[in-house]
Amino acid sequence: MDAEELLGVGRSADVYALDDAWVLRRYRGGGDAAAEAVVMAYLAEHGYPVPKLRPLSAAGDLASTRSDLVMERLSGPSMREALWQGGITGKAAGVMLAALLRRLHAIPARLSGDVDQRVLHLDLHPDNVMLTPGGPMVIDWGNVEEGPPGLDWAMSALILAQVAVTPGVEASVARAGLTAMLERRDRTVDLGDAGTGFLAQARLRRAADPNLTSREVGVLDRAVELVVEVTGVGRG
């Protein structure tokens, strides 16, 4: 098969067209796509909106390493593209992100026997939601872990807040999305405060992410303050 058509370039992976139905997602740094596929298959069994997967053996020599993932080719824009094009408002995006997080955390953990543990995406934001004719689909599960839902909410909130505090055309839309998302979080989910708890953990994770630019790292403190402002959680 011909995988020369590059469809997209992410921070850690590239996506190539295999044909009209399938794409190849390849990590540049050797990420474990096989482990990612196992989690995606588990979520699909529970009805969560993830792309369909195809066994690597069906893709021939192109998908021959653990860095390769073959999945269905989705139609429709990403949520971020739709926001840029005016096809969705920031508030509507926030409502959708909240629904996707709540739906994900309703699924039992795959490995842990702890009833408080859930599958966490840990990178759920508008770039990683595709708005297909059949509804939103969540992509890019490379950061997936099992843990407390509060950490997932804190990560998504902090990512949106980083955009909201950065001057630019996306700032006001990101703030509207952040507010709408957090207003609809499960009230049993505690983000903790800015000094301890899940918000603090999210900040540490974002600061340690090698894919972030120095500018993105530089606004983390202001982003934390915005989440504190929106949620009313303590400052630690």
Results as ranks from 00 to 15, higher is better:
M1C: 07
A3Q: 04
L7Y: 12
G8K: 09
V9S: 04
V9F: 00
D14P: 08
D20G: 02
D20K: 05
W22N: 00
V23H: 01
L24I: 11
R26F: 03
A35N: 06
V38R: 11
V39E: 03
A41N: 14
A41S: 15
Y42G: 12
A44P: 14
Y48G: 14
A58C: 06
A63G: 06
A63Q: 01
S64N: 08
S64K: 05
S64T: 08
T65I: 03
M71G: 07
E72H: 03
E72S: 00
R73L: 06
R73S: 04
R73Y: 01
L74C: 07
G76F: 13
G86H: 02
I88L: 11
I88F: 01
T89C: 12
T89D: 04
A92Y: 06
A98W: 13
A106M: 15
A106F: 13
P108D: 08
Q117T: 09
L120K: 00
V129D: 06
L131I: 05
T132N: 04
G134S: 11
G135V: 15
P136A: 11
M137L: 05
I139Y: 03
W141R: 09
G142S: 07
G142Y: 11
N143V: 00
E145N: 10
G147Y: 12
P149V: 13
G150A: 13
L151Y: 13
W153Q: 06
M155C: 09
S156R: 09
A157W: 13
L158T: 08
I159L: 15
A161F: 07
A161P: 09
Q162R: 15
A164G: 00
G168A: 00
A171W: 07
A174F: 02
T179E: 06
M181K: 13
E183L: 13
R185N: 05
D190L: 04
D190S: 14
D193C: 13
F198P: 06
R203K: 15
L204Y: 09
R205N: 09
A208D: 10
A208G: 06
P210T: 12
N211L: 15
L212F: 13
T213M: 12
T213E: 14
G218S: 15
G218V: 10
D221S: 14
D221Q: 10
A223Q: 02
A223D: 02
V227I: 11
V228K: 01
V228P: 08
V230L: 09
G234R: 14
